[in-house]
């Protein structure tokens, strides 16, 4: 309920300043013209093609990042030596904005999908690895001790104690970094692409179709909402044992 009324009040304010002519449609189009722009983009098939281009880039870029970050993150979490070796490299890469790699990525990969994936991986992988390491380090020491006393060797400890213990944290990290993926993919598509929502936006700007830009932005917002919802639902399904699944101060007070 609260979630919907938040969106509704933004919509109301938007309607107020546009339908009254307070802000010119060139800067801020009316909700109806944005909807009709979205509908005609949708009907022409352009919107779906661009949205699915961006989404599939994010998914692929994210999966490649996860494949790199999961082993590195877990190793960072369990091995002091590995941490000393790799952490400075990650810290160095992390502080360079991924957009700074775009010119280089274009020289290396052209302006096709692989360049977008490269930018996504550069943007996502270092953070994801650190977040996963953090989740692994937070494994309670007494659980590691309990596992060892029950006969777990080093490998068992990683796969049967540390990994399951950090999965909820890893899931949260994925949710966070997929969201961040939008930032990187849109930047990459704005700078050089022939498809994707970022490309749609820069094209619309060239032809001064402000309503189309808004349509694209709102689509991104909705896709974000869906993603968040997906992670929320799957978190509860995958981790019924987690304290967080049942957390929330309000629900706690209600049950008391």
């Amino acid at each position: 309920m609260l979630a919907i009324s938040g969106l509704v009040s933004v919509l109301l304010a938007w309607s107020l300043v546009t339908y009254t002519g307070f802000i010119k449609p060139f800067f801020l189009p009316t909700p109806t013209s944005v909807v009709s722009a979205a509908v005609s983009l949708f009907v022409s098939g352009g919107l779906i093609a661009d949205a699915s281009a961006s989404v599939s880039r994010i998914l692929l870029g994210f999966l490649v990042s996860l494949a790199i970050s999961l082993p590195i993150g877990i190793l960072l979490g369990v091995s002091r030596m590995f941490e000393a070796f790799v952490k400075p490299v990650i810290a160095f890469v992390r502080y360079i904005p991924p957009s700074a790699f775009i010119p280089l990525a274009i020289i290396w990969f052209g302006i096709g999908d692989s360049q977008k994936i490269a930018i996504l991986v550069i943007g996502i992988a270092p953070y994801l690895a650190l977040l996963i390491a953090d989740a692994a380090i937070n494994t309670p020491l007494e659980l590691i001790d309990a596992g060892r006393a029950l006969g777990a060797n080093r490998i068992n400890t990683i796969f049967k104690v540390i990994l399951p213990s950090s999965l909820p944290g890893i899931w949260d990290a994925c949710r966070l970094m997929i969201g961040a993926g939008w930032t990187f993919v849109i930047i990459a598509e704005i700078v050089g692409a022939s498809s994707g929502l970022g490309h749609l936006m820069i094209e619309s700007q060239r032809f001064l179709r402000t309503a189309n830009i808004f349509a694209a932005i709102i689509i991104i917002g909705f896709l974000g909402l869906i993603t968040d919802y997906f992670f929320e639902i799957t978190y509860k399904l995958l981790f019924p044992w987690s304290e967080k699944t049942h957390a929330g101060i309000e629900t706690h007070y209600k049950s008391v």
């Binding site: 309670p140 007494e142 001790d145 006393a149 029950l150 006969g151 399951p164 044992w241």
Partner: peptide
């Protein structure tokens, strides 16, 4: 395995 320990705060694996 011939030595088993039981900790003060149970230390059960919450995901199992």
């Amino acid at each position: 395995k011939e030595r088993g320990i039981i900790f003060q705060n149970f230390s059960l694996f919450p995901w199992l």
